[in-house]
Amino acid sequence: MSSSNPYSKELQIACLAVQRATLLTKILLEAVDKGAIDKFDSTPVTIADFAAQALIIGSMHRAFPDDDFVGEESADSLREDPELLDRVWQLVSTTRLEDPESEALLATPSTKEEMVDLIDLGVKGKCERQGRSWVLDPVDGTATFMRGQQYAVCLALVEDGEQKVGVLGCPNLNLEKGTVSEDVVDRDGYGLMLSAVTGQGAYIRPMGRGALAPATPIPKIRVVGTESDDDLSGLRFVDCAAAKSSDFEKHAQFASRIGAPWPPRADLWSAQMRYVAMAVGGCNALIKIPKKKQYRSNVWDHAGGMLIFEECGGKITDLEGNPVDCGLGRVLADTYGMVAAPEGAHARVLDALQRFSKETGAW
């Protein structure tokens, strides 16, 4: 990573922090597999969320002490449950990268009290139009995490309301078949990391236990047809049949209307992993028609992943064609639904979707 590039320090520390947090989640899953932790309750997910958030915020806060943090987890339950606190502390205090130079760039809380205070920084923060906020989701895809399927450790820098850095650690990601699947996972290694800085393209690298591996550029996604071509049958959707917030049936109707293949090429629970599927997993489009008019997404479910897709040649708007604004707080308050597609095809996809809505009352 060249120090002459904007945000080079932010990217380096973010990638190392995410890699260490993904290592932590793998260590926890190994304990579950060995029967050391009961997989039939929510404890492993809780420990992973808290521990990963503590490690990530600890490192980013030391490197960038004036920055804000936006995360989902509050440490209240840790303060109320000494046994749970001890288990989280055990994982946080013992997880280290095996490369001393890389580990030296990071930080680890020195006491349990410092750990819970770091976790709480995440619930105090807001993404606003001015200033810098690190947005994180320590385990995006908690249900699939416990099933040994796809999940992501997510970190993004939002500055003055715009994404600047995005890092997704995908510990189970396996691209041997060219697609992203819940059940095709990396059993032997530590998965893959995707990262991007605005205006600098997107990159992918294998993850491990030590220093960062070299990153390779992610090729631009393929444009569907031509800019004057109404044929959208080349769209390859990613979606989630089990999602409660979006209308999977209407998505299917739209795909049928434009002649695109359905069921979706990838069906993924983690919202962030859907951006991964569009970047490197053979998909090139995503739509989200909410079931409820008032629904708005949390910023940590999309920040970072959106940037990676955009740096791969994609474009993302809401259903009215407005850009996604990350500077309105902890939710994407002005973003109703979503349309993601290759930049050269996005206008045609949006137009087709809006015509579909007028004819069917989809929203």
Rank of each mutant, 00 (worst) to 15 (best):
K9C: 05
E10W: 02
L11K: 15
A17T: 02
Q19M: 00
K26N: 13
L28D: 15
L29S: 12
K34L: 12
F40I: 15
V45Y: 05
I47C: 04
A54V: 05
L55D: 00
L55I: 07
I56Y: 00
H61I: 03
R62E: 06
D67H: 08
E80R: 10
D86E: 10
Q90Y: 11
Q90A: 09
T95F: 12
L97K: 12
E98K: 15
E103G: 07
L106E: 05
T108D: 00
T111P: 03
T111L: 11
D117C: 01
L118I: 15
L118S: 11
L121W: 02
L121Y: 03
G122E: 01
G122R: 00
G122F: 00
C127W: 01
Q130Y: 12
T142F: 01
T142L: 11
Q150E: 14
C154W: 04
A156S: 03
A156E: 01
G161I: 08
Q163V: 03
C170I: 15
L173S: 14
N174Y: 04
L175F: 04
K177D: 05
K177T: 07
E182W: 03
D183S: 15
V184S: 10
Y190P: 07
Y190N: 09
A196R: 03
T198V: 12
T198Q: 11
G199D: 00
A211R: 04
L212M: 12
P217I: 07
P219A: 10
I221A: 12
G225T: 05
T226K: 12
T226I: 15
T226S: 13
C240N: 05
A241W: 06
A242Q: 14
S245Q: 14
S246C: 09
K250G: 00
F254D: 03
F254E: 12
G259H: 02
A260D: 11
A260C: 02
P263D: 15
D267E: 08
Y275N: 09
I289C: 01
I289V: 04
K291Y: 09
Q294V: 11
H302T: 06
E311W: 01
G313L: 02
G314D: 10
I316M: 04
E320C: 02
P323T: 05
V331H: 07
A340C: 04
L350Y: 00
L353W: 06
R355G: 04
K358P: 01
G361D: 13
